[in-house]
């Protein structure tokens, strides 16, 4: 059964109804504890997050800083895998109607089997994928037809070093949103946004792209979230949220307070 034409992608639905101050949260599947994937997701839905990115842990996450590396390692040590993740997400659409994206590195997806992976994504209700080490050229030549068939949007990253021409090319070839990496860096909180970054945000904003832009990497609190939202449709918080989960004694309460603190 191919339902990709009958169900509208939740990313599109979201951006049709809202195009500013979009808050996306990233966390690692099976972190801090193996069975926390769904409770964290549901708490994010209840707390008013707009998008959720669930990280698929990998042994060698080269685009990630220490916080997400550690969360990947802990999740793997506790036996997390893509297979287990899909089992956990099986019933998620009973309670969660947010756009949900899976983020991770290409190798585990390849070993699971790309087509099987996409089919599983569609089955549980995944809306998009972020695979930082899948280059655009490979995506277009070998992956896009399969992603399309299963209604999955592939989200691309851009950085301050990405040329205007390439930004336009990415804009033409992607759906959902564009993931703007805030500076030349791996993931992790930096607690401030500099003038050089603002110039880059404005440069991209003025390009009049066809898809929305979310800023990620280094967004950690209300201040940096507000600053990012001044230049884009919203922002993504990862490492700071992982740190919160790591020290939390009451996930539901802490997640609610964290999201409230960012949004209001």
């Amino acid at each position: 059964m191919n339902t990709s034409t009958s169900i509208k992608n939740r990313l599109d639905l979201l951006f049709e109804s809202k195009n500013e101050r979009i808050l996306s949260l990233y966390y690692t599947a099976g972190f801090p504890n193996p069975e926390d994937t769904i409770p964290v997701l549901e708490a994010l839905q209840e707390s008013g997050a707009d998008i959720v990115e669930i990280g698929m842990p990998f042994s060698d996450p080269i685009a990630d800083g220490p916080t997400i590396q550690e969360s990947n390692k802990k999740a793997l040590d506790q036996g997390m895998s893509i297979e287990k993740l899909f089992a956990q997400l099986k019933e998620m659409r009973n309670k969660v109607d947010l756009p949900v994206i899976l983020m991770g590195y290409l190798n585990p997806v390849m070993q699971y089997g790309v087509e099987k992976f996409c089919a599983s994504c569609q089955e549980v209700g995944i809306d998009g994928l972020i695979l930082p080490d899948l280059p655009m050229a490979e995506y277009l030549d070998f992956y896009k037809p399969t992603f399309d068939q299963y209604g999955l949007y592939n989200i691309f990253l851009i950085t301050p070093q990405t040329s205007d021409d390439r930004v336009k090319e990415i804009d033409r070839n992607s759906r959902g949103f564009m993931y703007m990496v805030s500076s030349a860096s791996t993931t992790g909180a930096k607690n401030e946004i500099t003038d050089v970054q603002r110039q880059y945000f404005e440069r991209i904003k003025n390009m009049q792209l066809s898809i929305p832009r979310l800023i990620g990497f280094g967004i950690s609190n209300k201040e940096t979230f507000d600053q990012a939202c001044a230049h884009a449709n919203g922002a993504i918080i990862g490492s700071a949220f992982i740190n919160l989960l790591d020290r939390s004694k009451d996930l539901k309460k802490d997640i609610r307070e964290f999201i409230n603190g960012i949004k209001n």
């Binding site: 080490d133 490979e138 990253l157 950085t159 070093q161 860096s185």
Partner: peptide
């Protein structure tokens, strides 16, 4: 072979 790198290393 190929070049499976994140966008940050593309340039």
């Amino acid at each position: 072979g190929g070049a499976y790198i994140p966008e940050m290393l593309y340039p």
